[in-house]
Amino acid sequence: TIDDAFRAIERAIQAENEGRYREALKHFLDGGEMIVTAAEKEASQKVRNLLLHKGKEVLEWAEHLAEWILE
């Protein structure tokens, strides 16, 4: 659900702030994927587009974090 997705993102932010970057990455990926999944089930085109945009933002952040971890 969207609530689960945002809880995962909150955990990711907390982990990132505490320097637990790999854990943060996992939570960002989980949250982003949950948002995209919820968007695919959404009946309203406007809400679907907003959710897809937010999911994409979260997944892009996860990608940047992963690249930073690997440096």
Rank of each mutant, 00 (worst) to 15 (best):
I35T: 02
L65C: 04
A15Y: 11
L25E: 00
S44M: 06
K41A: 09
I2T: 04
N17H: 09
E57D: 04
K46P: 08
L65F: 03
Q45D: 10
Q45T: 11
Y21I: 06
V47W: 10
D4K: 09
L65D: 04
V58W: 12
W61K: 11
H53L: 13
K54S: 04
S44P: 00
R22T: 10
A66P: 00
I69E: 00
R22Q: 13
L50H: 11
I69L: 12
K56F: 06
E18I: 05
E16R: 11
T37M: 13
A8T: 11
F6I: 09
K41C: 10
E33I: 13
E63P: 00
V47S: 04
M34Q: 05
E42M: 10
T37P: 03
R22F: 13
L59K: 06
H64S: 09
R20N: 10
D30V: 12
F6T: 05
L70M: 10
G55I: 07
H53V: 11
N49M: 09
Y21G: 01
E60P: 00
W68I: 07
H64V: 10
K46R: 12
R7W: 04
L51K: 00
E71G: 11
A8N: 05
A8V: 12
V58K: 01
G19A: 02
V36L: 15
T37L: 14
I35Q: 02
A24C: 07
R11L: 11
H27F: 13
E63S: 11
T37E: 10
R48D: 06
I9F: 08
A39G: 04
H27Y: 13
I69K: 00
D30T: 14
E42L: 10
E57Q: 13
L29E: 03
H64Q: 11
K54L: 15
A43K: 14
I35V: 06
L59Y: 09
V47N: 04
I35M: 14
K56Q: 09
G19C: 09
L51P: 00
E40S: 13
A62C: 05
R7N: 10
E67I: 13
E57K: 14
D4W: 07
Q14T: 07
H64I: 06
D3C: 14
A15E: 04
W61Q: 02
M34Y: 06
K41Y: 09
E23Y: 03
G31N: 03
L51M: 04
I2P: 01
E40Q: 11
D30F: 12
T37K: 15
S44H: 04
L70P: 02
N17M: 12
E42W: 11
A43I: 12
R20K: 07
N49S: 06
I9P: 00
W68L: 13
A12N: 00
K26T: 06
E23I: 03
A5W: 08
L52D: 02
A5V: 07
H27C: 09
H53I: 15
A39V: 12
E23S: 02
E16F: 15
A8L: 15
M34S: 02
T37V: 13
I2W: 07
Q14Y: 05
A38C: 12
K41P: 03
A12V: 03
Y21D: 02
L59A: 05
G55E: 03
H64M: 12
E33K: 13
L65Q: 01
D3K: 13
A43N: 09
A62T: 02
E60S: 11
D3R: 14
L65H: 01
L70T: 09
W61E: 01
E18H: 07
I69V: 04
R11S: 05
L65T: 01
I13Y: 07
Y21K: 01
L52S: 04
Q14N: 09
D3Q: 14
S44E: 14
E42S: 11
W68K: 06
E71F: 10
E16H: 14
E18R: 09
R7T: 07
A12K: 00
E23T: 04
K26W: 06
D30E: 13
I13A: 04
S44D: 15
A66Q: 06
A43R: 13
R7G: 04
Q45L: 12
V58S: 00
L59W: 05
L50K: 09
W68C: 11
E71Y: 11
K56E: 07
E18G: 06
E71S: 12
L59G: 02
D30Q: 13
E33M: 14
K46I: 14
Q14W: 06
R48S: 07
I2Q: 03
L29M: 08
G55C: 11
K54C: 15
E33T: 13
V47T: 06
D3S: 13
I9W: 06
G32V: 15
G31T: 03
W61P: 00
M34V: 04
E10T: 07
N17Y: 12
D3W: 15
L65Y: 03
Q14D: 05
I35Y: 08
K46A: 15
A62P: 01
W68S: 04
G55Q: 04
E42D: 02
H27Q: 07
I69P: 00
E67D: 10
W61L: 11
E33P: 04
I2C: 10
A15G: 01
I13N: 01
K41W: 06
G31F: 14
